[in-house]
Amino acid sequence: MFTLKETASSSLSLPADNYIYSLVPSAAGTFATISSDDSLRVFDAANLDRVAVVSPKAHDGGVTSLRSYAAGESQLLATGGREGRVKLWDVRAGKTVMEVETTRNAPVLSIACNPETNTIVAGTELLSSQAVVAFWDIRSPQAPRLQYVESHNDDVTELQYHPTRNNILLSGSTDGLVNIYDTTVTDEDDALVQVINHGSVHHAGFLSESTIFALSHDEQFSIHPATNPDDPGQEPEPVDFDDLREPLGVEYVVQVCMGGQGPYIAAGNKLDKRLDLVPLVSSPSWKFDQDNLWRLPGAHGDEVVRSVYLDEQSQSVFTCGEDGFVRVWKPDGDDSQAQAGSTKTSRKEKKPKDRFRPY
């Protein structure tokens, strides 16, 4: 086990008793957050007190989701809201540059961005017996260019594009399904290339080009090989980890984080006031490498951590949570903390920076 120590923290000048939902990278050296006061803020990664309020109220009905939209030299941010709108923000100008509406103003719960195809996707709450995955081309956003309206029968909580294939989109829902679509196909039935039945989806996504994960709202976790379109008879066998709380010694799972060394499970324990980043390794088979986990002691106190980002540029871990703070963490240089409970080895072997990096 290795230890990270907190090196900075800030409330981002939020009003008291607010908490931070999510943080994502913005322009170089900056991050963006959405919070329970419905504001959209950006802050300097090197100086958390340098904060700009892009909008004090990003959405009238309440902001629900935040994603980066990097397009060449422009750094835009996309947000979704409960009033059924998706907005694209120019951070430097502090204003929206595009705004679209869902059908019947269905609340937006999830969004995904694909700048290479000029696309923003929104997943909606179930409204009038319909949950929609809607696509807009930002060059002509007057109406959705594509909608999938039958693939989910409950709230769409997750959307993510494939890491290398711009035509492949993943969606997850509280109906228990994770769907994989070929978005070049307009017929909804034909567009579905894989359906995974997991349980009410909190998060889902791609661990690699050929591997999918699913995390439920009750901390059930599974890994699935992606269907090979060239082998339609293939029946991928999942690796089911069941409930992660007991085996990892945690109370809740935040998300899966992707780092330079591979994926990590970010999981917290409020009673012990800690957050762990547990490596997920695939060789020889998928398992959690708890001997090499990174621990963030203190975490966000007895409040839930809501979002984690592993930042390679600053070699830091950024977290935000229901205590209303953003916190920055770096490896603890104390060799005695580098590998708890292990047999003593040389100083060189025990240095966490030499052995393992989360970013």
Rank of each mutant, 00 (worst) to 15 (best):
S110R: 06
I111A: 04
A112Q: 04
A112H: 07
N114F: 09
P115Y: 11
T117D: 09
N118C: 15
T119Q: 13
I120K: 14
G123C: 10
T124M: 07
L126R: 05
A131Q: 10
V133C: 07
A134V: 10
F135L: 05
F135G: 01
W136H: 10
W136L: 04
D137R: 15
I138K: 14
I138C: 04
I138R: 15
S140K: 15
A143V: 12
P144K: 09
R145M: 11
Q147K: 14
Q147R: 15
Q147I: 06
V149I: 11
S151E: 09
H152N: 03
N153S: 08
N153D: 12
D154N: 10
E158T: 13
E158N: 02
L159E: 01
Q160P: 01
Y161D: 03
T164W: 05
R165I: 12
N166H: 14
N167M: 09
I168Y: 12
I168Q: 08
L170T: 00
S171M: 04
S171I: 01
S171Q: 02
G172V: 06
G172M: 10
S173K: 03
S173P: 04
T174C: 11
T174M: 11
D175I: 11
D175S: 02
D175T: 05
D175K: 04
G176Q: 07
L177I: 02
V178T: 11
V178P: 04
N179W: 03
I180W: 07
D182S: 12
T184P: 01
T186M: 05
D187F: 02
E188N: 11
D189N: 14
D190T: 15
D190S: 15
Q194I: 07
Q194P: 03
V195R: 14
V195M: 13
I196K: 00
H198Y: 07
G199R: 05
G199T: 09
S200L: 03
S200D: 01
S200Q: 07
S200C: 09
